[in-house]
Design a protein around this nucleic acid. Structure first.
Lengths: 147, 147
DNA sequence: CACAAAGTTTAGCATAGGCTAACTTATATG
DNA sequence: CATATAAGTTAGCCTATGCTAAACTTTGTG
């Protein structure tokens, strides 16, 4: 069954990419939330439900439900009718996310994409960029945008 | 309410990015499926459920269910217990998807990312790349990889 | 040609992530 | 300080995407 095994191996390699994409998607929302909460805290001292809902463009109830999941995951803390805070874990993820976001966005700008597009595309791309690719992007930014 | 309006406008601009990401996600699966079906037809003359399931790394039943949706959307045709085909619309989407995929993957390679990573990351990134960014990537590939 | 293996479909379940409508709590102002 | 408005919550609904287990077709082989 040599050919059979080869086929299986190829299939596994192939499917790995899709598995990664699906995993990225589950992590994605959490990343967006904590990043946004961190931004709101930095900008105005606290993060409220309504602000998150507005910025994400979803209904308030959706935010409430998602925050419950994030609380269960240990990323966020909150008390009823009060503002939202990040746990240590949450801050770590938020900082990671922001760092990545900045690199991707600057990279797109350095590549010659216009500011609006860079902002929009980076939002989608940032969650699918591996450490290697991120490094390559950072390298490119350093070489190409400081002249 | 000048300030109020400004705030609203900013929020709308901001939320637009997230709305695009959510829209991309719904389109994403369809793109992956038709692209894969097209590849299978080209490679071996027909696309079977099982092959799709293997390559995507999901269960057979999941593929069946998704194909039903794609059939409803007019991208795919199939008869019970038979191979799967693409409609004209389906081919169009598949070709678009493949074109995009190739550009993104070659772009990552040109950027200096290793082959495995390029293959994996391109799978996630391709669905979040706007026409503008794609153009910039193609430009970069043309300048940097043919020497 | 009968039957086993391989492939396909159905049924039923779970979770994530959206929504609206109705309700509760907090707050700001007359 | 009473109450209207703003903010947060709950309940209940929907769709998309996954899964497993069981049933059904097709096909290749003895």
């Amino acid at each position: 069954m040599v050919l059979g095994n080869k086929k299986t191996t190829t299939a596994k390699l192939r499917s790995a990419a899709f598995k990664r994409v699906r995993a990225d998607h589950s992590a994605e929302l959490a990343g967006d939330y904590v990043e946004m909460i961190a931004d709101l805290i930095d900008e105005r001292g606290e993060a409220r439900c309504t602000d998150i809902a507005m910025r994400l463009g979803v209904a308030n109830a959706t935010v409430v439900k998602t925050l419950k999941r994030l609380t269960d995951q240990g990323l966020v803390t909150q008390e009823p009718y009060r503002a939202i805070f990040l746990t240590g874990e949450g801050w770590k993820m938020a900082d990671d996310s922001r760092r990545k976001h900045v690199i991707v966005e600057n990279f797109l700008l350095a590549l010659g994409v216009c500011a609006d597009t860079a902002r929009i595309d980076s939002e989608g791309i940032e969650h699918h960029v591996s450490a290697d690719t991120l490094k390559a992007m950072a390298r490119f930014v350093n070489r190409n945008s400081k002249l």
